[in-house]
Design a protein around this nucleic acid. Sequence first.
DNA 1: ATCACTCGCTGATAATTATCATACCTTTGC
DNA 2: GCAAAGGTATGATAATTATCAGCGAGTGAT
Lengths: 214, 214
Amino acid sequence: MFFLHVHGEVMETVCGNKIEKQFEKGEIIISEGDEIRDFTYLKSGLVKLSRKGIDGKDQIISFAKPFDFVSLLSVFSSATYNYTVTALEVTTICMIQMDELKDIAMRNGEFTMGLMIHMSEATDKIILNNLEIRRKNLKGRVAFVILYFAKYIYAQNRFELPISRREIAEYIGMTTENVIRAMSEFRKDEILRFNGKEIEIVNEKLLISIADYG
Amino acid sequence: MFFLHVHGEVMETVCGNKIEKQFEKGEIIISEGDEIRDFTYLKSGLVKLSRKGIDGKDQIISFAKPFDFVSLLSVFSSATYNYTVTALEVTTICMIQMDELKDIAMRNGEFTMGLMIHMSEATDKIILNNLEIRRKNLKGRVAFVILYFAKYIYAQNRFELPISRREIAEYIGMTTENVIRAMSEFRKDEILRFNGKEIEIVNEKLLISIADYG
DNA sequence: ATCACTCGCTGATAATTATCATACCTTTGC
DNA sequence: GCAAAGGTATGATAATTATCAGCGAGTGAT
C-alpha cells in the first residue's frame, strides 16, 4: 500500500467554509444535462445517481452516502452532468467551485492525490457492484441490494428502506413486478419481515447464501 | 470545461525512459491477486481486463487500447490487483514504479490532475458501457460489441475479431451458445459476413438500429 | 498419427424473466 | 371529501435466455 487512504479529510479541509445546501427527501440535487460548475460532495443524508434511457426508463447507477462524492462520473471530462442526483433522505451537500478546486489541485499534489484515490475508490465500487449484480439471478440480486442497505448504508438488520420496489428494479435491472415477487417470497419464507417502510432481516444467513447465489 | 484533456502526453513524459515489456497474443500480463508494484499503461496492442467469479466463470470488465491505463480499478486503494489483464494482440506495456509515480504526483499537481482526468474518463467509459449493455437484449448486446470493435477499436467495418464467441459472452453477460446464435442470425440476415476470424459489417444501419434496440 | 481440447454451430427443452391485467391501499392535490 | 397517481401485490401468459446434448473442424501436445 503506497498511498494514504483519505476519506472525509481531504474535502473537509477544503470545504470548511464553502457553500452548503440542504435538500428534502425526493428533491433533485443535480439534473442530467446541468452544467458542471461545482464539485460536490455529500455531507449527510443519502442520494441516488440515475440516468434516463432512450426509452424513458431510468437506470440507477449507484447510491452515495456521507463523504462520497456526488461529482463522480465525467466531472472532469465533460461540461455537463450525464446523470441525475436525487435525495433519498434529508441530505446536506457541500460544494466548491470547479476552478477553485482546480487552483488548489494544481498547487497541491498531495491534495490531488488524495482526491484521485477517493474518486478511484468510489468508481471501483460502482464497477464491482455492477459486476456482482450482473452475475446473479433475480432473487440473488434482490438479496444483494437488501444486504447492501443493511450492511453498507445502515449497518443494522432493521431499517427503513429508503427506496421503492421500482427503484430496486431500476438498480438491479429487473422489472418491478419481479422484485415485488422476490420480496414477497422472502417474506413468506420468513427471511424478511416488513412493517410499513421498515424492513427487518430475520434469517440473515439464508439471505446471504441467496445473495451469494443459492 | 475547466481542465485540459490529457491523453497520452502525461504518461509519455513520465514513461519516456521507463521499463517496457512486450507480450504475445494470449499471454497474461497481470494476474488477479498479484501485488501492485507498478503503474502500467498500454503503449500498443489490445488487452482485456477480467475477473473470476466464485463459480469459476470469467467476467470481462473491459478492453483497453493504446494510451489506456491497465492499472485502473483499485490501483490506488488496494495492495493487490483484483482483475486479470490478458493480451488479445501483440501488446507493449509501459511501467513505472508506484512510489516513483507517487513522488512525481506529490510534487506536481498539474501532472496528478491530468492523471486523475484520464483515469476518471476511463472508469466512466467502463461504467457507461456496462449500463448501455445492461439495458439491451441479447441481439442488441451482440450488435453493440461488434460496433464497439468496429468503431472504437479498429475504426473500420472490416476487421479481425480479437476475441472468441465465449469472450463476447463473458463481456455482455450471456451464454456462449446464445452469442453464437445471434451472430449466426446476423450472418443469415446479411448484416454481417464472416471469413475465418475476419468479420465485416455489411448492413451497418441495421446493426446500429439493433444495437440501439430495435 | 492420435488424443485431448477448444471453438463454432445447431436443436430440443427447461428455466427464468417480462408483459399485461387487475386489485387494493396510501398519498397528494384540489 | 374526492379524484388522480403511485406503490404494493398477485395471476396468467408470452418472450427471452439458459441448459443439455451432440457434431465437425481445427490446434497443440506427445
